[in-house]
Design a protein around this nucleic acid. Sequence first.
DNA 1: CCCACATTAATTGCGCGCAATTTAATTACG
DNA 2: CGTAATTAAATTGCGCGCAATTAATGTGGG
Lengths: 152, 152
Amino acid sequence: MTSAPKLSDQLCFAAYSFTHALNRAYRPLLEPLGLTYPQYLVMLVLWEADGQTVKEIGERLKLDSGTLTPLLKRLETIGYLTRRRGRQDERQVIIHLTDEGRALSEKAAEVPVALGCAMGAEWGEIAELREHLLTLRDRLADAGCAVGEPED
Amino acid sequence: MTSAPKLSDQLCFAAYSFTHALNRAYRPLLEPLGLTYPQYLVMLVLWEADGQTVKEIGERLKLDSGTLTPLLKRLETIGYLTRRRGRQDERQVIIHLTDEGRALSEKAAEVPVALGCAMGAEWGEIAELREHLLTLRDRLADAGCAVGEPED
DNA sequence: CCCACATTAATTGCGCGCAATTTAATTACG
DNA sequence: CGTAATTAAATTGCGCGCAATTAATGTGGG
């Protein structure tokens, strides 16, 4: 039979549409800060540790330079960070927060609170779900899984 | 204090990076079918019920015409579906599968199997996670949550 | 009948996300 | 040394995803 898979059965679609709903929920919260959601993620990474290379940021967020380079240039234009070539290794570009970029974390503190409210979920529940997703993500990333046709 | 939120604490980032990992896992599986993941979702919707309008497909997938119109045009070009104005309401565009598009569901049947393998998770676990995500998604969509600044 | 309003797609503009390629700098090796 | 291999970013091209606008069709009220 091998009937077509059903949309409603798919974890993948659930994750896909949940992510888009999150993005839409973040938008009005981040707009006053002048940030998109991916830009907000980069700022989170920098608020945790300033002075990282593009590569380090990319490893943290699982993004490559094709995505990060133009994004970082926009954040530089806004004035939240600076991009400088490394001194001892000129291949690297090191990202530093400006005072304005650092100051932004104060305003951003309200964002996750508002999001938690919008989801109306408990901390334990959120934490469990988060671990679950990260576990599956890493399995997908490691696996590649080769996808050979299984012997029946 | 209102210290900056931590990336690792965020359900949102977990969902975000899980979705991207899924996309990357789907890519090699869907490439032989000539589909991207969003295109695959549209095909899923059509395999369930042929002859839907753009609006109906969009409601199912939570996508608007700005996304769907060019995507459907690509699928039309490939030859998997046709786009025709409705007869009784000429505002609507009705999407019909071609024979080739219908036949594709056979080949696509392997895809979710391979994905399930790559995640290495149990059916019950998957189902639970899926319901969880859909619940939170709908809360986010309904809420809008107004995000008024709380009175401290 | 005509006009205001609503509905459906299409269009435009912008920002990801990623594969593939290019450029420049560093490292390893003979 | 000097050349090949490696690494880090940048660039190019394409397909979403969505806000905002536009165009065309349908509906209802005076």
